[in-house]
Design a protein around this nucleic acid. Structure first.
Length: 498
RNA sequence: GUCCCUGUCGUCUAGCCCGGCCCAGGACACCGCCCUUUCACGGCGAUAACAUGAGUUCGAAUCUCAUCGGGGACGCCA
């Protein structure tokens, strides 16, 4: 059994493959950091590939934000959609023809098959299986369709997906797949636990599994360094490498960053947007340093010597092999301390410059100024109206945020609804207005109550510059964070009363 | 439910691979003291962990097994 590329002559190539489905994620930065270090230490190449095969969740601005955030952190890539490279294109939506050709290969050699089941049919089956406490699996309906039936379906123009035919096949009776995780050793999955994964969706786009394997091979990736959540789909990937007759890369699965309650890090329980960290005034050096602390990896981290180190020092001394496997809690408390350390270490000139380029940035100030010009009588009043743009914590009291005719309880419930709506809304005045009004109608909240509540949460007061415009200027990431913190704080309050 | 991963202070971790130097070290947070007109910084100190149980061994945080806990995956998302 081959366990990845063992030949040290082969130049090291690694990649990160974020999806442009929202704000750039702190997890992407973590995996990016490890990949970056690994490549730099070995004179290898670090590739950025955009996995935009999910057209439903696609967000147009996301890709650029990913670029910006990674640049901000100093994680420069050698090949990618913006800088090009010899293995392009680096955007999967531009590679659909490649995937289709490769699917044909699998179809031809019997390791994949067309499936005409509809999503609705399969959903019913899945529910039944779960209800019967059975593991949800594809029932195999289309796996052995006769050539005639398949042709008839095709001729009738029935939509189909292409699924992977997980062994045993007639001639290949392998019943399990073992692969090596460089951090954990051998991991084995029985094939009865590996589902016939969809490889090509009915819209003609590949799923992650297919696109990922094809691209990693074509881009000559030697080491797949990704998050632990991929372990259970790795056997599918290994099977695909074999189906194509390709050599597989090494697999390294990094521990998952966690919330305080140990669950996988999520936006509901933690700020996960890199945009948030930048706008809230975290320094890239501190964020990188903190990420480097996650899981250990620096010989002296945790030891008596240093907790503070730079990207450059990590490239010199970090050991990916030494990463601890227990999922580290992403604890803002320590990040904040670290950030403070970096701030204190700056020259006063640098500190001032940092302020001017972020929380007192020209664009930001200009936008805020335009919101308050008609609302001040002296320039000195500027601060009175705008302090919430510059504060980190805004926590209105119940007298302020609970509308007259509402109870605290229903107000908080509605605020939670607002948050949900805000999360999935494009960040512009018009879209926000429409979305919030729609919610208000559904829940029987008057526009006035609706907006007053949000105003109180975001600005700390019932009197403020125009709410929606302010939120647009303040930014989605920070606005959402403010609402989440508000809800969190209220939850704690009610908990302590009982 | 099924499968997989994982388990040292509240949190990040050192030690674990190559058993004794570990009645477990550092950092953050918390608490106390000092400095200080305030706050912060800084200095000093305190509390705090080897999940549990067996086994191997002269000796186990370190090796083995079991149990328990935590997490992830099970999607025409990635």
């Amino acid at each position: 059994m081959t366990n990845g590329l063992q030949n040290s002559e082969v130049p090291i190539r690694v990649r990160i493959a974020p999806s442009p489905t929202g704000d750039p994620h702190v997890g992407t930065a973590y995996i990016g950091l490890i990949n970056f270090i690994y490549a730099r230490q070995r004179g290898g190449k670090f590739v950025l590939r955009i996995e935009d095969t999910d057209r439903v969740r696609f967000v147009a601005t996301s890709e650029q934000e990913i670029f910006n955030s990674l640049h901000w952190l100093g994680l420069a890539w050698d090949e990618g959609p913006d800088v090009g490279g010899p293995f392009g294109p680096y955007r999967q939506s531009e590679r659909t023809e490649i995937y289709r050709e490769h699917v044909e290969l699998l179809l031809a050699n019997g390791t994949a098959y067309r499936c005409f089941c509809t999503a609705e049919e399969l959903e019913i089956v899945r529910r039944q299986q779960i209800a019967a406490k059975l593991p949800p699996r594809y029932p195999g309906t289309c796996r052995h369709l006769s050539a005639e039936t398949e042709q008839a379906n095709l001729a009738a123009g029935k939509p189909f997906v292409v699924r992977m035919a997980v062994p045993p096949h007639a001639r290949n009776a392998t019943t399990s797949t073992t692969f090596r995780d460089e951090l954990r050793g051998d991991i084995t999955f029985e094939h009865s636990n590996v589902d016939d994964q969809v490889l090509l969706k009915s819209d003609g786009f590949p799923t992650y599994h297919l696109a990922n394997v094809v691209d990693d091979h074509l881009m000559q990736i030697t080491d797949v360094i990704r998050a632990e959540e991929w372990i259970s789909s790795t056997p599918k990937h290994v099977l695909l490498y074999r189906a194509f007759g390709w050599q597989q890369p090494r697999f390294w699965h990094m521990p998952l960053l966690r919330n305080l309650d140990k669950s996988k890090i999520s936006k509901r329980k933690n700020p996960v947007s890199l945009i948030y960290y930048r706008q809230a005034g975290f320094l890239p050096e501190a964020v990188i340093n903190f990420l480097g602390l996650m899981g250990g990896g620096m010989p002296e981290s945790g030891g008596p010597v240093a907790e503070k180190f730079s990207l450059g020092e990590m490239v010199e001394r970090f050991e990916v092999k030494n990463i601890r496997l227990g999922g580290p809690v992403f604890d803002l408390t320590k990040l904040k301390w670290l950030n403070g350390e970096y701030i204190r270490a700056m020259s006063s000139e640098d500190f001032y410059a940092a302020l001017r380029s972020t929380v007192l940035g020209d664009t930001y100030l200009r936008e805020i100024a335009s919101l308050v010009q008609t609302r001040v009588e002296t320039l000195g009043e500027f601060g009175n109206l705008t302090h919430f743009f510059f504060a980190d914590d805004i926590l209105p009291s119940a007298e302020v945020f609970v509308p007259k005719k509402r109870t605290l309880e229903e107000t908080l419930a509605f605020a939670a609804e607002q948050l949900t709506v805000l999360e999935s809304t494009e960040w512009s005045k018009e879209t926000l207005e429409a979305a919030l009004k729609k919610l208000g109608e559904e829940k029987q909240w008057a526009v006035k109550e609706n907006f007053m509540l949000l105003r109180a949460i975001v600005t700390g007061s019932t009197m403020s510059p125009p709410l929606l415009e302010s939120m647009v200027v303040f930014g989605k990431a920070r606005s959402l964070d403010r609402v989440r913190r508000f809800l969190e704080a209220q939850k704690k309050l009610s908990g302590s009363k009982k």
